[in-house]
Amino acid sequence: MIVLNVNGRDHSLDVPPETPLLYVLRNDLQLNGAKFGCGLGQCGACTVQVDGQAAYSCLLPVSAAAGRHVRTVEGLGTVEKPGVLQRAFETEQAAQCGYCIAGMIMRAQALLDANPRPSEAQIRAHMQPNLCRCGTHMRILRAIRRAAGLPPDGKMEAA
């Protein structure tokens, strides 16, 4: 039995210990937020927070997450009571297909938890591991700035 703490709740799970956290979240806990994108740690669609840090859940064995705090996009808020980042993404309509978005929000959450007012360069560097194919980047950046209380039209520092 593995005891996994997700979004503040403990779950006792009878799953093979090497199973990547992603599959446990999606199939055993029925949480849809984290997505399978590549299974190779290349795209970030599966990003969750583990002890506050952004992590690829597709490459994190569930046994390695046991005893630590896992947070998924479901833990940030709901449709009725969205969290700060979720509300910012809604306000900026920062999604097209949206498949990458839960991962984007979780990676951004890890940044804002550590650095509540990041610079534009810090935001872009931090978000670099996560891919969006629809080209929603500009709105995702706006949403992160909005959540951080920064002017939504961020400017890159002059080179």
Binding site: P17, E18, T19, P20, G39, L40, C58, L59, L60, P61, V62, S63, A64
Partner: peptide
């Protein structure tokens, strides 16, 4: 054994 399990979930996919 723990290393083997971690490897299976974190490394084996590649």
């Amino acid at each position: 054994p723990q290393g083997a399990s971690l490897y299976a979930g974190a490394c084996a996919s590649c």
